[in-house]
């Protein structure tokens, strides 16, 4: 059950592009044609599925506070979490290189399809972001980490596929000249993000309190908190208004 929940949550609610803006650079640069967008999207799913579980293992057995205890009880007080960034990015860069070599050897067809995109991916924020969010959200098991890698990759894939299709069509529309290209892409992405926000109540059946406590974990914590403040404010204003109307009556 928690697998299914995490799967849909990562694709729709915490979509990498629309909720956290990860991998925006390549999203904007490579979304001019559907065919190339599919290639890059597939490469992202692939690399996320490899690096997130790998970095989960690194985090669990090397980086976390007290993670080195398997070496012996005297290592229990070590906390190497400040090395997170350098270790994660090194893993990603190496894995991308490795994956490239292996794919080239065993599946030339796939290599030709992904070929030019693989090196690009080493510096794609979506990949490092996937690992960092995995750490920040404290995903408990290796299986869930694998699930998280694949499903957030699928979310990214969906997003780039959608925008590429829209951009192919929008070439025939009469967009105001200064907005053409980059500007309109930003605005369309914004509108799509608004659309994706409607998935927010999907897992909780629209129960906002439960949703805030569940999704409001580290990532969107800031915004959810602000939203809660905001809604408290509106509640207050509403009650103030009620009082006013009451007194008038």
């Amino acid at each position: 059950m928690e697998h299914i929940e995490l799967f849909f949550k990562s694709i729709f609610i915490d979509n990498m592009i629309f909720a956290t803006f990860l991998g925006m650079c390549s999203y904007l640069a490579v979304s001019k044609r559907v065919a190339t967008a599919v290639g890059l999207g597939a490469a992202v799913i692939f690399v996320l599925a490899v690096t997130v579980p790998l970095n989960w293992l690194l985090n669990e057995y090397i980086l976390k506070d007290g993670a080195l205890v398997w070496l012996g009880p005297e290592y229990a007080s070590y906390d190497l979490s400040f090395l997170t960034f350098i270790l994660f990015i090194a893993t990603i860069a190496t894995m991308v290189q490795l994956v490239e070599i292996v794919v080239e050897k065993f599946s030339p067809g796939l290599y030709n399809a992904l070929g030019i995109f693989l090196p690009l991916i080493a510096v794609n924020c979506a990949i490092l972001g996937g690992s960092l969010f995995m750490q920040a959200r404290e995903i408990p098991t290796l299986g869930l980490a694998l699930n998280y890698g694949i499903s957030s990759g699928i979310g990214w894939f969906l997003a780039i596929l959608a925008i590429a299709a829209i951009r192919e069509k929008i070439r025939y529309s009469n967009v105001p000249a200064p907005l053409r290209g980059l500007g309109i892409t930003f605005i369309i992405t914004g509108l799509m993000a608004i659309g994706f926000m409607s998935f927010g109540g999907m897992l909780t059946g629209g129960d906002e309190g439960a949703e805030a406590s569940e999704i409001g974990a580290p990532v969107m914590g800031v915004e959810t908190e602000q939203l809660q403040n905001e809604s408290n404010n509106t509640d207050k204003t509403i009650s103030v208004l009620d009082n006013q109307t009451l007194t008038k009556e």
């Binding site: 956290t20 105001p176 200064p178 053409r180 290209g181 309109i184 930003f186 605005i187 509108l191 608004i194």
Partner: peptide, 28 residues
């Protein structure tokens, strides 16, 4: 304005304003 989609739209508008001022940046 606090929600994430508005960040994208605000940047879109900044790009718009900038390209109205500087016609050379307009893409075809």
């Amino acid at each position: 304005m606090v929600l994430s989609p508005m960040a994208l739209i605000v940047i879109g508008i900044i790009i718009w304003v900038q390209r109205i001022k500087n016609k050379e940046l307009i893409e075809d």
